[in-house]
Design a protein around this nucleic acid. Structure first.
Lengths: 344, 344
DNA sequence: TTTAGCACTCTCCTTGTGTGAGTGCTAATA
DNA sequence: TATTAGCACTCACACAAGGAGAGTGCTAAA
């Protein structure tokens, strides 16, 4: 797409801009990266790159900075796809994980914190949602007066609990029986599958009312109806140390983004569709507030099926190469952990 | 302590400063609050107040702003202790709570969000810790290969789950029996009491090793050893809209404070000792990073014993009177909910 | 005891100026 | 034809100077 010379210039601009967030000029490039061309030539090339949309000037007579398209080209054509392996991350994760057995949410929480401290960006994770969660066991126990505590265990390591109303006035024995029924019938199915099955059945079989089975189905439905992915985002205070966030407006945007888990889930649900490390640069992101940020994320899997997401959120100005390696390492490690543990 | 005239001036300064964060001058006070004295007299009074430490000048020839001591005096002597009742809050909480049965953590999470949207400050809550949590039931079920899922239910509405290693290779039946034993023996005790009991017993009775009872005690110990209070802080993006947070340094401090749950728990553990709405103003707070902030918090209770904390964190410059009412209302409402539900 | 008057102080905003980095263009060069 | 040197031009930024405005403290008068 670009000739080698232009590519090298683009590379130099991005590299330099990542190091420090000042517009980079032609003279600086020739000196720093020992080009065999004079500044004037570089200027011509830069003007070309600007015309093509890879670079832009914050204002006339300033140096150039990369555009989103520039970063995109860089990520796709220049850094190549030799994703590395981040030793430090693995060490840190091992240290944190082996401490004791934990459920997926705890794991992800620790993982985002680790990613954040290593990268200095925001750590990001999403736990398996209804499609990625395989029911392993459900447990129903009477709690207060007229409520039931439900515990849902999944193959992926996600554990959830919930309180539901005991509308049918079921005894402990009833609950045991119901739980046994649900377990017998639905273990091994994903939450999503169970839900669709339930909907179908509850609509069709309105006749078999009041049997224990019907109660079981209703209870099951209620237990699972709120089951959704959790989003973890950590490391705000470390990302604020970056020079990219000296502007208060940017910080506000960022904090709004973080708090809006809903939008974030929608976004990540799209990312989860594709395999491998995904890079979303600036305005490629459908969330407007994130147009100054990039997301690097990858899926971790269980049984070769994408379960959830792990990654980072940072300013567009980041070292994509090493961050991609970092995220890839994290995703692989999580996958390994799930599949090891899942063994049974 | 202060004569009435000085008190009124202090009141006026604080009131005006709360309305907008500009140093307030003598002339402004006479006009706005229709004092019967001239600016010059007010200046004299203000000079006195400054000498006594209730006011200070950001710089010579600027107006005065209240000091922490000034706010303290205001809170204790001027606003009086006729705590109000916040209708809006109750409405909003009811709307959010009745939606469906929830455990304490969910409830607190909703509550902090509500407090935050109403007050525009940070909503703050702490769930019951080991001392405030009464065991109602524990549930042990085999999970994966060599792990056990534990569910802990308390009278206060807190539900926790945890994964522990199945080191003794216990079967589902063993676990049932152990759970029954623990429930029989420890239901109605606080987590803390159970812990001390366990420690005592595990040390003394090293002889009765390998009986089911000993395994039960070990398991119980492991299930409860991490049981701690949760802290909820929400509303960062709304508090950033306040004019008090235009400074990036302040924002950084704030975000560090929020992330440091550990320190926060220590602080709240102190607040929980005292009954009623507590006000911690600026540097009265042992956490240095919070010296520009105030905390208004109160305890919610179960069985007349303080369970946890609900409140807000905001800039020192806040309308203490209405915020105190707000927090008091929230605490009472939570208490009511717990005690209603707890019925059994 | 209170107030009027006045000099003084300090922040903040505006304006002007210089500097430096970097560009685009043109003409000369290899 | 591709590259380079030279030069005029532009713009952000830092700095200083100058007011304006708000507010004070002090002194002397009411």
């Amino acid at each position: 797409m670009l000739d080698e010379r232009a590519e090298r210039v683009l590379w130099a601009v991005i590299k330099s801009y990542i190091e420090s967030p000042d517009p980079v000029g032609s003279r600086y490039i020739t000196k720093k990266y020992a080009f065999k061309y004079s500044p004037a030539t570089i200027r011509n090339i830069m003007a070309d790159l600007e015309e093509m949309g890879y670079l832009r000037q914050p204002h006339t007579s300033a140096g150039r900075i990369p555009t989103d398209k520039g970063y995109r080209y860089f990520v796709e054509h220049i850094i190549g796809h030799d994703v590395g392996y981040d030793e430090r991350l693995i060490e840190e994760l091992q240290k944190r994980f082996t401490h004791c057995a934990r459920d997926m949410d705890d794991l992800l929480n620790e993982a985002t914190q680790t990613l954040s401290t290593i990268s200095h960006f925001l750590g990001l994770a999403m736990s398996p949602g209804p499609e990625g969660s395989t029911l392993r066991r459900i447990e129903l126990v009477p709690y207060k007066e007229d409520s039931i505590a439900v515990m849902i265990l999944t193959d992926e390591g996600v554990i959830r609990h919930k309180i539901i109303k005991n509308d049918y006035d079921l005894s402990a024995n009833d609950l045991d029986e119901i739980a046994r029924y649900i377990n017998r019938r639905f273990t091994g199915y994903t939450i999503k599958e169970i839900r669709t099955e339930l909907v179908k059945e509850l609509i069709e079989d309105k006749n078999l009312c009041d049997t224990l089975i019907e109660k079981a189905l209703h209870l099951c439905n209620e237990s699972l109806n709120e089951y959704g992915a959790n989003v973890f985002i950590t490391g705000l205070s470390s990302i604020l140390e970056l020079p990219d966030f000296t502007d208060v407006e940017k910080i506000k945007e960022l904090s709004r983004t973080i708090e809006n888990k809903h939008k974030m889930i929608k976004l990540l649900d799209r990312i989860i569709q594709t395999d491998g490390v995904q890079v979303v640069i600036g305005s490629e992101n459908p969330i407007k507030e994130m147009s100054t940020m990039s997301i690097i994320a990858s899926t971790y899997k269980d049984k070769d099926r994408p379960a959830g997401i792990i990654g980072i959120i940072g300013p567009k100005r980041m070292d994509y190469h090493s961050v991609i390696s970092l995220v890839d390492t994290a995703a692989r490690y999580l996958t390994k952990i799930i599949e090891e543990e899942g063994g049974s």
